[in-house]
Simulated assay, not measured.
Amino acid sequence: MAVTIKDVAKKAGVSPSTVSRVLSNHPRISVETSRKVKEIMEQLGYHPNIMAKSLVSKTTNSICIMLPKSAEELFSNFFFMELIRGIVTQASRLGYDVLISSGANEKEEVEAVSRLLNGRRVDGVILLYSRKDDPVIDFLYENGHHFVLIGRSERYPDTLSVDNDNVQASYDAAKHLISLGHERIGFVSGPPDLVFSKDRLKGFMDALNDAGLEMRPEWIVEGEFLQDSGYRAMSFFMNLPDRPTAIVLIDDVVSFGVLRSLHELKYKVPEDLCLVSFNNIPLSELSTPPLSSIDIGIYNLGYTASQLLIQSIENGNDKNYQKRQIIPHRLMIRESSMHSISKK
């Protein structure tokens, strides 16, 4: 026979309402009483009826992670897995379960979050991306749902978000290459509809402009966050009559494709081409050669996003906390960019 709240209350010597308050983390319950009741729950093997609790409290103690459309990109890129690890770790510590959802296109994404939120299966959503024009963000913002964006929204600058200073980070990457004497510097970007791709390109161009360097259109290549994008970019770059001597890359996984292509073409890094990338995933320092990369604090991005969303769910959006959290970045200099070049 299943253990009930009344069974827990009787053994703990408290009322059933006190047990309910312990389950809901009511602020008027003392630490001692809470500890005692939870010990009794564990002894008796009591598990609260989450569905019944949700009906009373109108919360689910669950949040949703909305994945990008491309499963190939997600599961081949350590960035997303580390981001999710940060989200799940903090959610678990705060007593929340995590549900993962996705959609094949924007319409399916909107339908998915609408079904989950309006069906009261989750209390809020974390978006792992920020697009320039995003109907998912439109839906969440206009309907007053709890959500946190990893990135930033150009349309809704006051939305809850966790991000890096991508303009400054990219500026720092380009500035490092400029300090080594490079004047012909290329850029391998991400999809143009993503806000951080735009921000990183801006930081890159600002650095070149401040140094009085030329930026040729053919030295900028757009792609996806896949090795193949880097591989194809090098086939293009290395066939230019006046090719770059250094390149800033949007993502470490893209850089691995670059390294593979350069190896096949018999070019050496950093002697023939210097590289600086983004994300500083563990494999970046194990590549050949070890890859210089901007560490953006991936785990902290996810951890902070989870914390911010749950804070919003439990306290509302009118509390005194910063709505836009910026995670610091740092440049990890390794062998791929340790080659100076004489300025002409």
Rank of each mutant, 00 (worst) to 15 (best):
S17A: 12
T304A: 10
A207S: 12
V110S: 00
V122M: 03
V248I: 07
I296N: 01
D7C: 09
L265P: 14
S76C: 11
I29R: 10
K36Y: 07
G190D: 07
N164S: 06
S170W: 02
N105Q: 05
L177M: 08
Q307I: 06
V167L: 10
Q43S: 10
D252G: 03
E142M: 04
S30I: 12
K323H: 12
V188F: 10
S293D: 03
N279L: 13
L275F: 13
L331A: 04
N209P: 12
V31W: 14
S70P: 04
D295L: 11
L140T: 02
D165V: 12
A207V: 05
N280Q: 13
L23K: 02
F80V: 08
V56N: 12
T18M: 05
V122S: 05
M51I: 11
P282Q: 06
S20P: 13
A112Q: 06
N143K: 07
S20F: 02
V37E: 01
G186S: 10
S229K: 04
D242G: 14
T33M: 11
R120Q: 11
N61D: 10
S284M: 08
I310M: 05
K343T: 15
S70I: 13
Q43M: 14
I29C: 09
H182Q: 13
L308Y: 04
L177G: 02
L308N: 04
D133R: 02
G203H: 01
E222A: 09
S292E: 05
